[in-house]
């Protein structure tokens, strides 16, 4: 796979098939942690970090354990296992090596374990049979796309505080409507790249 295709893969995972707004994965942090741009961004960065690492780790599991032993049905179990262990490990390493980063990521880091976008990514990679480099690019792109969606959502919700929202729609209602509108607008990218 040459550079151009990798770039297209990256753009594809960021915009065209955005994990949150096109695939509807990882919607809980998307709605839960998108009240302020700053925290949304930290969450996005943490997720990107874990996504890239776990994408690669699960790629190894898929290609060197599950495939050779003919156990593709164990994907879910083993992927969750690996992701959970990996997040734990990453947390320990960050805590030791960079306390400021650890403090900045805070509770988001362990929470990411249960983010379905991470597992979704691992399963997609296995399904499409990506190579190592492709997996890295795809996973990083997915993380960037997640961050993008989070920050846009947080930006809108920050402004929404001053908007006159009808009472029945306040809170979760308007958040879901915005998510839908955002998702629709992102569908405009769908013709950009034929995947």
């Amino acid at each position: 796979m040459d550079l151009k295709e990798l770039f297209l893969l990256f753009i594809g995972s960021v915009l065209v098939n955005n994990f949150v707004l096109a695939r509807f994965l990882g919607t809980c942090p998307f709605l839960g942690v998108s009240k302020e741009v700053e925290t949304a961004f930290s969450m996005g960065v943490a997720t990107t970090f874990v996504m890239t690492l776990s994408g690669l780790a699960t790629w190894f599991i898929e290609n060197y354990i599950l495939e050779p032993f003919g156990l593709p049905f164990l994907q879910y179990v083993s992927f969750i296992l690996v992701i959970a262990a990996l997040v734990q490990l990453v947390e320990m390493v960050i805590r030791k090596t960079s306390p400021p980063l650890y403090r900045a990521l805070g509770i988001f880091l362990p929470l990411i374990t249960t983010n379905c976008a991470i597992l979704g990514l691992a399963l997609l990679v296995a399904l499409r049979g990506y190579g190592f480099i492709e997996t890295a690019v795809f996973a990083f792109g997915a993380g960037v796309g997640f961050t993008l969606a989070m920050v846009i959502m947080a930006g809108i919700r920050e402004r929404l505080r001053f908007a006159d929202v009808p009472e029945p729609l306040q809170g979760a209602g308007i958040a879901l409507i915005i998510a839908g509108l955002l998702s629709m607008s992102l569908m405009g990218f769908s013709g950009l790249i034929a995947m």
Partner: peptide, 24 residues
């Protein structure tokens, strides 16, 4: 095969985490 591979994976990950928690 599933039992063995998952068992080994689990043990390895567990040992790795235990080691990491001491090291870090």
């Amino acid at each position: 095969r599933s039992l063995i591979s998952m068992g080994i994976l689990g043990v390895l990950l567990g040992a790795g985490l235990a080691f990491a928690s001491k090291k870090f």
